[in-house]
């Protein structure tokens, strides 16, 4: 591991109209670290992932990946807006799995996975197919390569989505409530797959989840978000079992009672 941070948020501010989602946020994630973000909905945790994936721009502040800003670059000693090519280069370091899968309905499972490696990385089709087949095998769906997304169950869709994101070999993976749309039993299978993945790779991983058991198992660090701020930040035992803030205690109690 090098000692450069994998991800840095510096003084990030983000609002939708009047609604402030992230307020003066600072966050550093080490390479290979697994960080779980919890908190009530609307507290800004998903926005962190969307900002990192460049699905949205911050209103102010800097986001750095491996020491390099996503949106800004220096030219002739001055900081300027980065060209699109730079943003695409930075984006290639990040992969994302979505709550609602977002598979492409018009492409078969295998094409869903090969599309980006062929179009974005310029990989040969044969090579892309070979690797996609490996990935499908790894997520336990080797027999589904010619299926249409609509023919898969929710859990299968999410596993394809994971394979699709992995196909671009990102160094950072973002998981945005990936089991919220699934039945509890199916969710367990998908989370098991992610746990396996986490032990096998050195990717930096960020999770937004409501599954506390999974958080404890996978997290190096847990962040508790409330109203656009990180109000608790520590190892899972500390945040989940001995929270310092009353707001965290209240949230965890509610979750426990619900499950």
């Amino acid at each position: 591991m090098n000692n450069k941070a994998s991800i840095e948020f510096v003084n990030i501010h983000k609002a939708y109209q009047q609604n402030v989602v992230l307020e003066n946020l600072n966050l550093t994630v080490a390479p290979g670290e697994h960080v779980v973000m919890i908190g009530p909905s609307g507290s800004g945790k998903s926005t962190i992932l969307r900002l990192l994936m460049t699905l949205e721009n911050p209103d102010s502040g800097e986001i750095l990946i491996e020491g390099e800003s996503i949106w800004r670059t220096t030219r002739d000693g001055r900081t300027v807006d980065a060209p699109a090519a730079h943003v695409r280069k930075m984006r290639s370091k990040v992969g994302m799995v979505f709550q609602h899968f977002n598979l492409f309905p018009h492409l078969r499972v295998l094409q869903n996975i090969t599309e980006a490696p062929v179009r974005v990385m310029g990989m040969s089709r044969a090579e892309a197919v070979r690797r996609a087949t490996d990935l499908l095998d790894r997520v336990g769906l080797a027999d589904k390569s010619e299926a249409w997304p609509a023919e898969l169950s929710g859990g299968q869709k999410q596993r394809v989505a994971i394979a699709r994101a992995l196909a671009l070999q990102p160094r950072i993976m973002l998981f945005d409530e990936i089991t919220s749309a699934l039945d509890p039993e199916i969710a367990g299978q998908v989370l098991h797959l992610v746990l396996e993945l986490a032990t096998q790779t050195e990717m930096t991983m960020l999770f937004v989840t409501h599954q506390m058991r999974f958080a404890r198992q996978i997290a190096d660090r847990v962040l508790f978000f409330d109203k656009g701020r990180i109000i608790e930040n520590g190892i899972p035992e500390q945040v989940l079992e001995h929270p310092q803030q009353p707001r965290t205690r209240e949230f965890l109690n509610n979750i426990l009672q619900a499950s």
Binding site: L55, R88, R91, M96, N102, E115, A116, R164
Partner: peptide
């Protein structure tokens, strides 16, 4: 979103 995340 998915297309952007795949860097298309």
């Amino acid at each position: 979103d998915a297309a952007t995340a795949l860097n298309l």
